[in-house]
Structure formats: C-alpha cells, structure tokens
C-alpha cells in the first residue's frame, strides 16, 4: 500500500473525530473526539516518516503521544472542575462568553 492510502485513512479518522467534537453534548465526549483526531495525525506522521526514510516523524510521534497524555489529563481535570462549579456536563450550558 502506498502513502496515499495511509493519508486517506488518517483523513477519514480525523474527520470522524471532528464530527465527534462538533456534535457531542458531553464534554468528555468532545475530549474523546479530540483523541481520535490526534491519533490520525500520528498515523500521518509515522506514514510520512516511513515513506521518506527519515526517523524524525517517528520521534515526533513519541512527543505527540506524550503531549496528548498531558492534554487528556488536564482536560479531564478541567471537566471535573466544571462539574463542581457549574454542576453540568453539557457543553451547551457552558456559554459564559455568549455575546
């Protein structure tokens, strides 16, 4: 299989994750969508690295995974805090910035 196949697969997964981000009402659900999107980016990075014969992309994937973990931990902490403060899990209710 060529590079294009892997990139297309990543694009599909990315858009599925994007769909989750814009449709989910639950904040944790949104976070799950974001995880999917990050994953597809990782696929891209590894595929490019493999097909260009350069290990850099793979090293970056390692970094991305680490950052994703940090992001997930922090995001979930924020979710818990939101629960405490606003007593809601629904993203629709979090509209303090409404104009």
């Amino acid at each position: 299989m060529g590079l294009q196949a892997y990139l297309t697969l990543a694009a599909v997964v990315f858009c599925i994750g994007f769909f989750g981000v814009i449709t989910r009402r639950n904040t944790i659900g949104i976070l799950l969508g974001i995880e999917l999107m990050l994953n597809s980016v990782n696929i891209n990075l590894v595929a490019f690295a493999r097909f260009s014969g350069d290990v850099t992309g793979m090293v970056f994937t390692v970094f991305t995974i680490c950052i994703t973990v940090a992001e997930a931990a922090l995001g979930l902490a924020i979710v818990i805090l939101l629960f405490r403060v606003r007593r809601t899990v629904t993203a629709d209710h979090l509209d303090l910035l409404k104009g």
């Binding site: 449709t23 949104i30 993203a91 979090l94 509209d95 303090l96 910035l97 409404k98 104009g99």
Partner: peptide, 18 residues
C-alpha cells in the same frame, strides 16, 4: 447583530475552524 455570532459555545467556534 454580529453579537449573536458569539454564542459562547465552543463547538460553534469549531465550525469556524472547519
């Protein structure tokens, strides 16, 4: 009028990103 664009909901802004 433009104020209504700012719904305050993060997901609406993601449409802008898209």
């Amino acid at each position: 009028d433009l104020r209504t664009m700012q719904t305050g909901r993060a997901q609406d802004y993601v449409y802008g990103v898209a």
